[in-house]
């Protein structure tokens, strides 16, 4: 059987045969290649590769799920923005409408009040004008009487006798009319 020294070749190995072409080493090499390669193949096919494949698959699924979720969030946020803008536009429109209605109402009220006040004022004005006209007429009548009295007093002082009141009144009326003319 084989010697155990370090430089021992395979049993019966020929010195001078190029080792890769030494046929006597073929059975052991093929045997162990078969054993190791079949073991390797089985472990790869049954354990290692399915495991790595499932890890990669899981990760791909996770990434795809995350991307889908992110897209869903993006769509949601876009919808929210759109809804917000719509609500804003509606609110703005409503605000405009309310403002317009309020303005119209206030304008109408103000107009009404102004008209009422104007009517009142016109009434008061008319009353005041009547009063003024009355007062003026009364005053004018008084003026004539005072003028007549004054004239008769002046005439009495001048001529020492009291003139007839009718003559004085006629003269005053004449004078005032003439003066006015």
């Amino acid at each position: 059987m084989a010697e155990t020294t370090a430089h021992t070749e395979v049993p019966g190995g020929h010195k001078g045969v190029f080792p890769p072409f030494n046929k006597e080493t073929f059975p052991t090499q093929l045997t162990w290649l078969g054993i190791t390669f079949i073991l390797l193949y089985v472990m790869m096919a049954k354990v290692a590769l399915p495991r790595i494949g499932s890890i990669l698959e899981e990760r791909r699924g996770h990434i795809d799920g995350a991307i889908a979720e992110a897209e869903r969030f993006k769509r949601d946020s876009e919808a929210a923005v759109a809804a917000y803008e719509k609500a804003l536009a509606e609110a703005r429109g409503k605000a405009h409408a309310i403002a317009g209605a309020t303005r119209d109402k206030l304008n109408a009220e103000a107009d009404e009040r102004r008209k009422a006040i104007e009517a009142q004022l016109a009434e008061k004005l008319a009353a005041a004008e009547t009063t003024i006209a009355d007062t003026k007429a009364k005053a004018m009548a008084n003026v004539e009487a005072i003028a007549t009295e004054a004239a008769s007093a002046i005439v009495e002082k001048l001529i020492g006798k009291t003139p007839s009141s009718d003559a004085v009144r006629a003269a005053v009326a004449d004078a005032t009319r003439g003066g006015r003319a």
């Binding site: 084989a2 395979v10 049993p11 006597e24 080493t25 059975p27 052991t28 090499q29 045997t31 162990w32 290649l33 190791t36 390669f37 073991l39 390797l40």
Partner: peptide, 17 residues
């Protein structure tokens, strides 16, 4: 007739695997 002893080649194949 075949020898299937563990050789250095076999050891390295086992190590590789």
């Amino acid at each position: 007739p075949a020898d299937i002893s563990i050789t250095n080649s076999a050891a390295f194949m086992i190590a590789t695997t």
